[in-house]
Design a binder for these strands. Structure first.
Length: 174
DNA sequence: CCCTGATTCGC
DNA sequence: GCGAATCAGG
C-alpha cells in the first residue's frame, strides 16, 4: 500500500494526537505494521514522541497525556481522488451538553478498540467525558452517524460562514 | 511475554 | 522511500 496524502494525514493526526504506532497502524488498515508507521513517521520528520526506551527528560512531568485518539483524517468510504479529498475537512467537534443519565455505563478511553465508535462527547478531563461507543463502520473510527458528521464536503469558500469561532476563555489564541 | 519507539539496512 | 528485523526499555 502506498503512502497517499490521505494516509499520511491520518498518520500525522494519530501520531500528533498521541496514538501509539500500533494503534495508528491498525487504523490504517490491514497489512500496515507499526514498523511501517514508525518508519514513515521518522521519514516525515515527525518525532519527538516519548519513547519508553529513550528516556524523556524531566521524569517528573512525564507524559503528554495523549488524551484522546485524535479524530483522524480518514479517507471517506468511496475513496475520493486527491482533488476531492482536499475539499473534505473534519468538522470541528462541538461539545454537546452532557446528558444527565445518572450512572449509565460510558465508553472510556480504555474501552476503545477498532470496532467501537471513538467520537468524543464532552471534554477530555471532564468527569463525564466519554466516547460514543456504538459499533463503528468497518474501516472507520466512527459509527455511521458520526462518520457523517466527521466527513463532510466543504462548502465553497464564498458560501461559508466566515464569522470567527467562539473563543474559549483561557484558550491561547492562534 | 506483552507492550513501546528507535534504528538499521537490504530491497 | 519503504518496512522487517532488531534493539532496548517498561
Amino acid at each position: 500500500m502506498a503512502w497517499t496524502d490521505e494516509r499520511i494525514a491520518q498518520l500525522k493526526a494519530g501520531w500528533e494526537g498521541g496514538m501509539t504506532a500500533s494503534q495508528i497502524a491498525e487504523q490504517l488498515g490491514e497489512g500496515v505494521t507499526r514498523n511501517a508507521v514508525i518508519g514513515k513517521a521518522h521519514r516525515l520528520g515527525l518525532e519527538a514522541r516519548p519513547s519508553p526506551v529513550k528516556g524523556s527528560e524531566d521524569p517528573g512531568v512525564v507524559a503528554p497525556p495523549a488524551a484522546v485518539a485524535a479524530p483522524p483524517v480518514a479517507p471517506p468510504p468511496n475513496s475520493p481522488p486527491a482533488a476531492v479529498a482536499a475539499t473534505l475537512a473534519p468538522r470541528p467537534i462541538v461539545a454537546k451538553k452532557p446528558v444527565r443519565t445518572g450512572k449509565a455505563a460510558r465508553t472510556t478511553l480504555l474501552d476503545l478498540n477498532e470496532k467501537i465508535c471513538k467520537w468524543p462527547l464532552g471534554h477530555p478531563g471532564d468527569a463525564d467525558f466519554h466516547f460514543c461507543g456504538k459499533a463503528s463502520q468497518a474501516g472507520f473510527p466512527y459509527c455511521t452517524e458520526h462518520c457523517l458528521l466527521a466527513y463532510q464536503a466543504q462548502l465553497p469558500r464564498r458560501d461559508r460562514d466566515r464569522r470567527p469561532p467562539p473563543q474559549m476563555p483561557g484558550m491561547p489564541r492562534r
